[in-house]
Structures are given as structure tokens and as C-alpha cells.
Design a protein around this nucleic acid. Structure first.
Length: 335
DNA sequence: AACACGTACAACCGCGGCTAT
DNA sequence: AATAGCCGCGGTTGTACGTGT
């Protein structure tokens, strides 16, 4: 429709509010209520647009606003709600009395988002990230831990880290190769893509766990999936040069799109605990961890659909390699 | 002390939903 | 049914303040 912005009128003030303007606004609303925001500025004697007045009132001047730092409980609630609702700040604010959507949004962008990223989680999906660069802090932490225990040399660590990075790249590339499978003519794309993500995650976990145990780079995992069909040991045969030449093609490799299915929950929780580096009592991803009961929010729809799935098949759909995969030279090297 | 850089947060902008005409 | 206008929301920007060099 292209309605012009309400603040187009010339002569209306913008920018920071003065205490005088605040007083006028508070006084007017206390006496008359805000009524029509568009009409309010004139009636209150404020040289601003109604939108600006509404924002100032709802985000700053409202008497029921709780100022000050967010408590641990509030932080936990925001994390929980964001995992379910996403960036629905007003909906999240509805569960936090006295907090405005703007305040929560700012708190998220300046604190919580960074916190999640530092912990190796995708702040949008709340799931572990597997792309190499976002995982580097974990790899380094892992190497440092190992060093403390075993007193191995820096050179050994470097070799180990390099090997681990290559291993992760392999997993990532495999995930990239398998992406078309998840959307290749079957009826339940969400279901299939969840298998892809889970398998890659488990392969990655196995790789890291194995390294932790004996510096071996991988161990085969007993899952009846295409990932297993290729096998992590087969992955070891991928030449690094080919591998890294493919990496720039990866599109958003860190995103996990679907929840884990219930049959894989044990592995999923292990991975969650592992990824966090410690069993944080405040973990938003562990069901029993919250110190306060989570608000009753309906789970996302796809969570329910996953309940019906099984780890032993792809919903019964006949399996075939997609053309995109068959055309890839690396696929032929792998198989 | 001066500067650069990072952080926090208030405020603005533009879009879309809803409602009245 | 189409249009116009209001309101609320989410994304982005601007700026004050803090910290490190």
C-alpha cells in the first residue's frame, strides 16, 4: 500500500527525549490515558509524532517497567522461550512481567546471542554448530584439556587439531553431499533432514570422542543410514585437497533445521552436554535443568511429527542417490 | 591525556496486520 | 471489495559510556 511514515511531517522533533518531554507525556497519559497515539502529541503539547510517544511510553516511561539487570531466572526464561518462539520479542516479553520487548531484544543481541555463539551453539536454532570455524574454540579447549591431562607437546596438539579440523571438514562435506537426499521426492522432508543432521552430529561426536580417548580419528557408528553406508572410515580416504576445495560451496553448514527424534535422544543429550563443555545447571536444552518451571508454551509443530519416526528407515521410502550426488566427483571417490 | 575500540541501550524506520470507511 | 490509516512488531542505527593501549 505504501503508506507514508507517520513521522514525515516537518518540524517534529526526533532523537533523545528531554525530561521536560517525558514529564509532559507521563502527566498526560496519567490523566487521560494514551487514547489515540496519533492525536496524543498535539493534546499533550509535545512536538513529536505519535509513534515516538508510544515508543517512549511503552519502552521507558511506563510505571510498571522493571529496570536493572536481568536475573538468572529471567535469562533462563528468555533462552527457553526463544528456543520455542524465535524472535517474537513481544511474545517473550509477555512472559516476563515488567520487561519490554525492546529490552529483551537488546539483552538478547548484546548478551545471550554471544553467549550461545561462544558455547558453540547456533543462536537461531539453539543447536550445536558443526562448521569448523565456529567449533574452533571447542577444539582448542579440548586440546588444552588433553594437554593438562597428558602433558603432550604443543606440536602434538597442533597435529591433533589439524587432524580434527580435517575430520570435521569431512563430516561437513558429507553433510553437504547428503543434503539433496533430504529433499529428493519423498513425502516427509523434515523427517529425512532430521536424520541427516543427526547422523552428521553423531559422526562428529564419535570423531571427537574417539580423539579424546586414543587420538584415533574415528570409529564407525551403528546407525542404519546413508552416513553409515558411506562410513566414517571411508571418509578418511577423501584427499584433503579435494575436501577443502569443496568447502566454500557449503551453504549455511551450521544450521540444524529439525529437532532430534526421540529414539536418538540419548545421543542427543550426550552431545548437548559434551558441546557445552560442562553440565551447566542452567542449560536451556536439558529438560530438567531449569531452576524455574518453563512457561507453558506449545512445542513447535515439527517436534510432534518427529515422534513418529524411527532410526531404522527413511519412512519406508526407497533409497536412491540423487543426480546431484552422482555428478559429484568426490562422491565417486568415496564410493 | 588522548585515542581507538567495544558494549549497551534508547530510539528510529519500515513493514504487515487489523479495522474503519 | 478496495482503500486509507492506525498500531504494534522486529530489525537497525546512533550515541553515550566504559575499557584498553
Amino acid at each position: 500500500m505504501g503508506r507514508p511514515p507517520c513521522c514525515d511531517e516537518n518540524g517534529l522533533k526526533k532523537g533523545p527525549w528531554t525530561s521536560e518531554e517525558d514529564q509532559k507525556l507521563v502527566k498526560y497519559i496519567q490523566k487521560h490515558g494514551h487514547g489515540s497515539w496519533r492525536a496524543l502529541p498535539k493534546l499533550a503539547g509535545i512536538n513529536r509524532c505519535g509513534k515516538s510517544c508510544r515508543l517512549r511510553w511503552t519502552n521507558y516511561l511506563r510505571p510498571d517497567i522493571k529496570r536493572g539487570k536481568f536475573s538468572q531466572d529471567e535469562e533462563q526464561t528468555i533462552l527457553n522461550l526463544h528456543a520455542v518462539l524465535g524472535n517474537k520479542w513481544s511474545a517473550i516479553a509477555g512472559h516476563l512481567p515488567g520487561r519490554t520487548d525492546n529490552e529483551i531484544k537488546n539483552f538478547w543481541n548484546t548478551h545471550l546471542k554471544k553467549k550461545l555463539i561462544q558455547m558453540g551453539f547456533d543462536p537461531m536454532t539453539h543447536r550445536p554448530r558443526t562448521d569448523i570455524f565456529s567449533s574452533l574454540p571447542h577444539l582448542i579447549a579440548l586440546a588444552n584439556l588433553k594437554e593438562l591431562v597428558d602433558h603432550h607437546s604443543w606440536e602434538e596438539q597442533a597435529v591433533r587439531l589439524q587432524a580434527e579440523a580435517i575430520q570435521m571438514a569431512r563430516v561437513q562435506y558429507l553433510q553437504y553431499l547428503l543434503q539433496p537426499l533430504a529433499s529428493n521426492g519423498t513425502t516427509n522432508n523434515n523427517l529425512n533432514s532430521s536424520f541427516m543432521d543427526m547422523d552428521s552430529t553423531i559422526s562428529l561426536l564419535n570423531s571427537l570422542s574417539s580423539m579424546k580417548d586414543n587420538f584415533a580419528l574415528s570409529s564407525p557408528h551403528q546407525l542404519d543410514t546413508p552416513t553409515q553406508a558411506l562410513g566414517t572410515s571411508t571418509l578418511q580416504s577423501v584427499p584433503d585437497s579435494i575436501l577443502f576445495s569443496h568447502l566454500p560451496q557449503l551453504e549455511n553448514p551450521c544450521t540444524y533445521q529439525t529437532p532430534l527424534n526421540k529414539d536418538n535422544m540419548v545421543q542427543a543429550n550426550e552431545f548437548t552436554a559434551f558441546s557445552q563443555g560442562e553440565n551447566s545447571p542452567n542449560s536451556p536444552w536439558l529438560a530438567s535443568s531449569s531452576s524455574t518451571p518453563s512457561p507453558s508454551v506449545a512445542p513447535p509443530a515439527e517436534t510432534n511429527s518427529i515422534d513418529a519416526c524411527s532410526t531404522s528407515s527413511y519412512g519406508g521410502a526407497p533409497f536412491a542417490w540423487p543426480d546431484l550426488l552422482l555428478e559429484d566427483p568426490l562422491f565417486h571417490e568415496l564410493s
